[in-house]
Amino acid sequence: MRLGLVSLPMAGKSTLMAAAAAWARLATRPGEGGAPRAGDGAAPSAPASGVVVARIPDERVDWLAEQYRPRKVTHATIEWVEVPALGPAHLQALHRLDAVALVVRAFDPEQRSVPHPEGRVDPVADFRRLWEEWLLLDWSQVQGRIERLRSTQSVPKAQRRDIERELSVLERCLQVLEQGLPLSKAALDPEEAALLKGYSLVTFRPVLLAVNLDDAQLAAGGDYPGRDELQRAALGRVEAVVDLAARLELELAELDAESREAFAQELHLTLPVGVERLGRAAYDACGLIAFLTAGEDEVRAWTITRGTVARDAAGKVHSDIARGFIRAEVVAFDDLKEAGSLARARERGLLRLEGKDYVVQDGDVIEFRFNV
């Protein structure tokens, strides 16, 4: 999945990207995290590229890797994409994102070392400004399309029905935007949503809020001026609010494991750090889950949309498996871990045979049977 970062100047967005890259590098270091890293499909990109590819931490993958000692371990991944600014020129880039995080600063409220461009540190005001600009991108598109459709003259009756239907959907969307809400709250059915697929409407995707703190605010339990008001302003608009400390998390990633843990405890920093929690929150907000496959060749997490059936999940592994699907042998990860091995899970009757229409659950460990 691709998560875009949007912010006003001096909010720490570039530092957050650097921290994401540093933690991605950390995940590939031998000995970190207790699981094999050779061949892990989560090697980070250089942060200077504006895109960082990082694995999503998953203790289930790590546990399976310890059991099987495979030649390759592949976690689900997330692409962090730095969006330089908001505006029509970036609509194409925004259209390719799965989710967006608005980054606001609460750090350095006295501006002793990092001045705010507007001479004040106010996360609530920054969020509201970003949110209004974000909605305005969609409002402009929807309003413009409505005006063009209303001006359409002399069209066949059948086509007029299609235009009237699209107008009805767009007018509802406009009402939602004018209430200050994203289009993800428009409650469109699948056919109505399909009418808008050709537009680059950005607020259909989940939006998260990342609040960038400093060391002192972390030591105070994550408290900062305007916290309660920001939570109220974000309610019903964003999928999650994640506190993080980008500069500190960047520094932590460069320490050895023992020093990192001690430093984190001293500063009351919750692990996993905010960078990783933000990535996980975006993954969840997009309705994504992972099923797992395990063997001597590879242990892997496969990302699918919640509600995916077994045959479609098999297609993620290989199209031939979906085409020749016979059945899926499924065990829930928690059951497998409690049993200690696949053989013991089978002895206890925890391994199930499921058909093509079985709805895959998060954490299912699956072996597909097929014939082509």
Rank of each mutant, 00 (worst) to 15 (best):
2 R>M: 13
5 L>A: 07
6 V>A: 03
8 L>S: 10
9 P>F: 05
11 A>Q: 09
17 M>S: 11
20 A>K: 00
21 A>P: 08
22 A>M: 08
23 W>Y: 11
26 L>H: 10
28 T>G: 09
41 G>F: 09
57 P>S: 10
64 L>W: 09
65 A>H: 03
78 I>Q: 02
79 E>H: 10
79 E>W: 03
84 P>I: 07
89 A>T: 09
93 A>H: 13
93 A>D: 15
116 H>D: 15
126 D>R: 02
126 D>M: 10
128 R>H: 12
137 L>R: 04
141 Q>H: 09
142 V>H: 04
158 A>G: 08
162 D>M: 13
164 E>S: 10
171 E>P: 02
171 E>I: 09
172 R>D: 12
177 L>V: 07
188 L>M: 06
188 L>I: 04
201 L>V: 03
203 T>G: 06
215 D>F: 09
216 A>S: 13
216 A>I: 07
218 L>T: 00
218 L>E: 15
226 G>K: 03
235 L>C: 10
241 V>N: 03
244 L>H: 00
248 L>D: 03
251 E>H: 06
253 A>Q: 05
261 E>H: 09
262 A>I: 12
270 T>A: 15
271 L>G: 01
281 A>M: 04
281 A>K: 00
283 Y>M: 02
286 C>I: 00
293 T>V: 12
295 G>P: 06
298 E>Q: 13
299 V>H: 03
305 T>V: 11
310 A>H: 01
321 I>R: 00
322 A>R: 14
322 A>V: 04
322 A>W: 01
326 I>T: 05
330 V>A: 05
333 F>P: 02
333 F>Q: 02
338 E>V: 14
349 G>A: 09
350 L>D: 02
352 R>D: 09
363 G>K: 01
364 D>W: 03
371 N>R: 08
